[in-house]
Design a protein around this nucleic acid. Sequence first.
DNA 1: CGAATTTGACCTGCGC
DNA 2: GCGCAGGTCAAATTCG
Length: 300
Amino acid sequence: MERKEVVKMEEGMGSSPFLDYISSSYQGAFDLTEGEKSGSLGFMELLGFQEFSPVFDVGQVASTATTSALSPAGGKIESPEVLNQPATPNSSSISSESCEGVNDEPVKVEDQEEDQHKTKKQLKPKKTNQKRQREPRFAFMTKSEVDHLEDGYRWRKYGQKAVKNSPFPRSYYRCTTASCNVKKRVERSFSDPSIVVTTYEGQHTHPSPIMPRPSFCGGAQLMTSAAGAAATFGMPMQGTTPPYHLHPFLINNLSPLNLPQNGSSFLHERRFCTPAPASALLKDHGLLQDIIPSNMMKEE
DNA sequence: CGAATTTGACCTGCGC
DNA sequence: GCGCAGGTCAAATTCG
């Protein structure tokens, strides 16, 4: 499972957290005006909806914050997660992926939810046939002073843990919407505290409760195509249609082809309203920790 | 007073 | 089997 991969990653990278590596490696890329955006901009703004744009360009527009998509490649067998799968409705592709093939049956949001409930009630009954189902994940690196960026959704913090090899704790958030079990993790880069890594997990089953301001990136057309992906990763999308699932675009562009061989992940730095290479969108293979820096460098 | 956060305990999975 | 680390729960506390 992923967890394992994560651990491996860390170990493989020695004692230095991958985040540390990433941040240092991309330090140059993160050239935004320090802190200005902190707290004042919403996550969507930070992203400028560009995630959903067909094209991304690294570094062009000066923005208040720099956001990068991380593609935990996890490289391991089981992980051809979400994005490298053919575009399929969340119920099938995403879920199945998140399940890592554990459950071949398409898992619907409701099912997952139900599952979760069970789990919650009695912390135990989850072992039998259900391995922890993994949701599709998508991570972003954002240079920000604030840990919890506004993304249009309401999140409730349900935990915080110290991260090994990092002085910064990792915070766990869950979408407050009853029927939505999207989660996200927020942590800071070890070496560069100004960088916040946000990992979304799961798919929103509802529209954003907090409509973000219209994208100043002229994302009207982007919205439609990106809607699914946005919703999937907790990014609010206005006008998003009910099946809040991963969008084909994301999937296609995040295919393994974009990944360094051996399944390592890579990361691209993106900026506000900046068109970036399609490769900027990443395939989510797991936790941020799954990201293997060595290859990222090559990507650049 | 209800919602959100904090925080210690507990659970799970993995490596040794 | 044991220990470690990540992830989650839930009671207590704080906040609006």
